[in-house]
Simulated assay, not measured.
Amino acid sequence: MEEQIIQLLFYCIPAIVTGGVAYYFFSLHTKNEEGRRRYLLHKESQKDALPVRLQAYERMTLFLERIAPASLTINLTPVTDGKDDYENRLIQQIETEFNHNLAQQIYLTEDCWGIIRAAKNTTIQMIRKIAMSEKIDSASKLREAILTEFMDKQAPSATALSFIKKEVSEIIG
């Protein structure tokens, strides 16, 4: 009887080893196939999402170009002679443009969106700071002072625009 058990073990051990090896290779193959499918789905979704992301970067580029102090003051002429009215009009235009593009943040990186928001807020702060000057008493002088201030300095929107260009070049490759 003992001999029969040993013979049975000699027959079963190779079958168990073969079954274990087959199971290992089958599970490895299944994992590889699942990974390949995920990769193909991700690649396909990236292909579909890329144009939308690039469009978001384009829209934010337009936003930054529109809020650049030179563009802003050229496109928005003073309606009255009051500097406060002109200051409020400039700031309202920046806020309106920004609010119009709020949804684009879902397609941008956190860093990029943060830099764009910082550019917007810094531009508004600089306009307010220039408008506080005692020397400026009319809308035309405020406009002139804003243009003069940003001739010597790089506008915050230009810095954000450089960041966008860098990110887009990394996306495109």
Rank of each mutant, 00 (worst) to 15 (best):
M126F: 06
I115S: 13
K31T: 09
R89A: 13
Y11L: 15
K120H: 00
L8Q: 10
D152M: 13
N32Q: 14
I116R: 00
S133A: 14
A119C: 03
K165N: 14
D137N: 13
L108T: 07
S157K: 01
K47V: 15
N32E: 14
F98Q: 08
R66S: 13
R37A: 12
R143P: 03
G82C: 14
E87P: 02
S162R: 10
T122Y: 02
A145R: 02
S138V: 04
T18K: 06
E167F: 01
G173H: 08
Q125D: 14
G114L: 04
L41K: 02
D111Y: 08
F150R: 02
K135F: 04
Y107T: 00
Q93R: 12
Q125T: 07
K153M: 10
I115F: 05
E134S: 11
I106Q: 11
L50W: 02
P51I: 06
R89S: 12
G114N: 08
S71V: 09
R59W: 07
T80Q: 08
A15S: 08
Q46E: 15
K153V: 12
Q104F: 05
G19C: 13
D137I: 12
D48C: 08
L8K: 08
A68I: 01
A119T: 00
N88L: 11
E149Y: 11
E97Q: 02
G114I: 00
L40S: 07
M126K: 11
N88M: 10
I67R: 01
T109Y: 03
A139Y: 02
Q46R: 15
I136D: 06
E144Q: 14
L41S: 13
N101E: 09
K165I: 06
F26P: 00
Q104R: 00
N101M: 03
F98I: 01
I74C: 02
F10L: 15
A145Q: 09
Y11S: 13
R53H: 04
I13L: 10
W113I: 00
T73S: 06
T159E: 14
C112L: 15
E65F: 05
K166L: 12
R143L: 11
S140R: 05
S138C: 06
Y86H: 03
L102K: 10
R128V: 02
G114Y: 01
I171E: 14
E44H: 11
E34H: 07
R117D: 05
S138Q: 04
Y39N: 09
A160Q: 01
M151D: 11
L41R: 02
V168T: 10
L40P: 01
D85K: 00
K135N: 09
G20N: 09
D48N: 15
E134H: 05
P51W: 06
L142E: 09
I6S: 04
K43D: 14
M60H: 01
E144D: 15
L28A: 11
L90C: 05
A118H: 01
L40T: 09
V17N: 00
L50M: 14
A160P: 00
T109S: 15
Q55W: 07
G114F: 00
L147V: 09
K120A: 05
H29F: 10
E34A: 15
I171Y: 04
A56E: 06
I74K: 06
R143T: 11
L54N: 09
C112M: 14
